[in-house]
Amino acid sequence: MIPFRRPTLALALMAASFLMVSTACKREDPQIRELTQKAAEADKASQQLNQAGTEQQKKLAQAGVNDVKPNAETLQLTDEQKKALEERIKNEKNSSYQALLQEVLDKDKEIKELNTKLAKLKADLPKPDLAKPNDSHYGMAMRFLKKKGVPEAEAKKLVSRVAIMEKLAPGFEVYHFYANGTYGTWVAQGKAKITPNDLMRQEREKVEGERDEAVAQNEKLQEEVVDLEGQKKKIEEEIAGLRSERTNLIEERAKLQSDNAAQVSKLNSLHYVVGTRDKLKAEGIIEIPVFAKDRAGKNWRDEVFTQSLDLRSAKTIAIKAAELGLKKIGKVNVVPGSYLKDEHYKLTISEDKQTATIELITVSRFKNDKVVFAVTD
């Protein structure tokens, strides 16, 4: 469960590592701070309960007790199931098996205590909103405040003061706290298969490193534009010059965006070279050991890899025998040898031996990498 109090999701993402244990800020309403702390405890208990339930399933499987199914909601055993297991323990002569069954009962006791603790905590908390597909944190917050009778303008102002998750997973539990004109919110995992922290981390991982640089450049240009606009208001006689300068900045920004797009394409592409094995060896691009796979040669350099495949839109490479001056294609070696056939890529040679098709399987592994396809007839 994650408390949201900061003004931007970017800050929330940066703080994800400590949000799980952070406390309410000093300016926060005491009532909201207390509810937030209880929500944190409830989330911790819920996570422990889920973990204990998973461990219980493993213990049941290890003990070979396939006929015992804990309650899907509470993860607890029924009284009948516990009695049956206790009877098995009494009658079982194998001490190891007895210990496994006893671990199941001990774990059930732990699960019961966690359920009791969780129920007590949730009894003191408001009922959370359950996120459905396409629900937004902002929309849920606004609906909550409107139901509380808060005018829309004031509701927007209150929501703007807390960090709002840009994306919710179905099943997330969204808590809303409102007291003395202050709004707070807390997102818990609930029935979702992923935690809010993990979801934010996944979203963060989708953003390539070069985007950070592009954003920084964009912010810098925006600051310059704002500065120029301010000068234009103060110095009317220089308005023509400022407009010209602003146009130049926009063009520069467009160029930076174009350069960034090229960099993004490079980072998402496979850079490769295709040639006959003998020629590649002669040029020093690869080496051919006697008792090992082909490997990079002394002339393995960036400028050698003049061909590229944008992996965002393409996954295959076609090699033509005629283009290599060969009568047929008998074999294609992939260098480096750490790429494994049928695991990282699939190689198909046509029946007439005129075309070899490389289909990339683990596409992410090939991103921004250099590969040699050495062909022999």
Rank of each mutant, 00 (worst) to 15 (best):
I2S: 03
P7Y: 00
T8D: 06
L9R: 11
A16F: 01
S22I: 12
R27V: 07
D29S: 14
Q31M: 08
Q31V: 15
T36A: 13
A39I: 10
A40F: 06
K44D: 06
A52D: 00
T54Q: 04
Q56A: 08
K59L: 12
G64R: 03
D67Y: 14
K69I: 09
P70T: 09
T78V: 06
D79R: 10
Q81K: 06
E86F: 02
E87N: 12
K90G: 06
K90R: 06
Y97G: 04
A99C: 00
E103P: 08
E103Q: 11
E110K: 06
K112Y: 07
K112H: 07
L114R: 05
T116S: 02
K120M: 07
K122S: 06
P128I: 07
D129H: 01
L130W: 01
G139I: 06
A141N: 13
F144N: 07
K147P: 03
K147I: 10
G149V: 14
G149E: 15
G149Q: 13
V150M: 10
K156A: 12
A163L: 05
I164K: 00
I164H: 07
I164Q: 07
F177S: 10
Y178G: 14
N180G: 05
T185N: 13
A188W: 02
Q189A: 05
G190E: 10
K191H: 02
K191R: 06
A192H: 01
K193G: 07
P196S: 08
P196I: 05
D198F: 02
Q202T: 09
R204S: 14
K206C: 08
K206T: 08
R211F: 15
E213V: 09
A216E: 05
K233A: 15
I239H: 07
S258T: 13
N260G: 10
N260E: 11
Q263L: 14
G275V: 02
K281M: 01
E287D: 11
K293M: 11
D294L: 15
S308E: 05
L309Q: 09
R312F: 04
K315G: 04
A318S: 14
L326S: 01
L326R: 01
K327I: 08
I329W: 00
G330D: 14
V335I: 15
Y345I: 11
I349V: 13
D352W: 01
Q354N: 00
T355C: 03
T362Q: 12
V363E: 04
R365K: 08
V372P: 07
F373D: 02
F373N: 01
